[in-house]
């Protein structure tokens, strides 16, 4: 059954028909993946169909709304990508810091994680925006990226820490016994293996991050959400506008989550037997 999933489709099965029925007619919910794939395709097809139908049947508000939004979408992606680029190294450093035997480094990393995790992102965004504005001249984009990557750096730190800890101790010992030092062991032996456990949750954090960028609209950042808000405020079409906004976020996150799961299965290359 597994092989069918990996090698493509068994004969006579439609692309969506990935329901696995083991011999004996027992439907075991063993393959979580299959379940997600179904829910995933249903959601994606649903979202695309609803959006298409709305835009063709009532082009007056819906197509207009859709045409209005691309500028905001660009900013959303800009904020997301910049934040990912900053948050991942920050997460790695935090994770390593949390694992460090040096008490000072460990304490700094742990305190950072505790503090950040204890403050809602929206509050952080407000705080950083106004705090930075008080002392420095920074653009909305910069403070948005700083706020989001600061917050997600802490979340990802925990992901990195867990991923590194999941690599068996014997791997480190084997590497050290060959004569590799601590840094080489981390780079050549531990991190490449940890990456496999880390990538899926980091991918999910990135998707969550994309959704959370909608919060930066409070700082008048012209992202997708802000574009929607201004369109709704002008036209009074609140329901219609937010329907389109929700569908767009949904389609993007569904596509990205698919990308993460493809990446995940590619990273399992060395476990496949033969």
């Amino acid at each position: 059954m597994r092989e069918n999933e990996e090698n493509g489709l068994p004969a006579g099965m439609a692309p969506e028909g990935k329901i696995e029925v083991p011999a004996g007619g027992l439907v075991l919910p063993d393959s979580e993946k299959g379940g997600i794939v179904n829910a995933w395709s249903l959601s994606l097809v649903g979202a695309v169909v609803v959006l298409t139908v709305l835009c063709t049947v009532w082009p007056d508000p819906y197509l207009e709304i859709l045409r209005f939004l691309p500028g905001g979408l660009v900013v959303t992606f800009e904020v997301t990508i910049l934040s990912i680029v900053c948050a991942i190294p920050l997460g790695l450093i935090t994770g390593l810091g949390r694992l460090s035997h040096n008490r000072v480094i460990n304490l700094i990393a742990s305190t950072y994680v505790e503090v950040i995790r204890g403050i809602p992102l929206l509050v952080q965004i407000f705080y950083i925006y106004y705090a930075l504005a008080k002392f420095l001249q920074v653009s909305g984009l910069t403070s948005a990226v700083i706020a989001i990557s600061f917050c997600y750096g802490a979340y990802m730190g925990e992901v990195f820490r867990a991923g590194i800890m999941a690599v068996p101790k014997g791997q480190t010992e084997a590497s050290r016994s060959l004569g590799f030092n601590k840094v080489q062991t981390m780079l050549f032996v531990v991190l490449p293996q940890a990456l496999r456990t880390i990538i899926p949750p980091v991918g999910n954090e990135c998707i969550a991050m994309l959704k959370d960028t909608s919060l930066v609209s409070v700082m008048a950042m012209p992202d997708l959400m802000q574009f929607g808000r201004s369109f709704a405020a002008k036209s009074y079409l609140y329901f219609e506008t937010y329907t389109v906004i929700a569908l767009i976020y949904l389609i993007i996150t569904l596509l990205l989550s698919k990308a993460v799961s493809i990446l995940e299965s590619r990273l399992n290359y060395y476990d496949k037997r033969k």
Binding site: P168, E173, S177
Partner: peptide, 20 residues
């Protein structure tokens, strides 16, 4: 110690080959 270890081969009970 890393130089010394390069001169001492070690084989473990659990093999500890690098799976990647």
């Amino acid at each position: 110690i890393n130089k010394i270890r390069q001169n001492l081969g070690m084989v473990f009970q659990q093999f500890n080959l690098f799976p990647h």
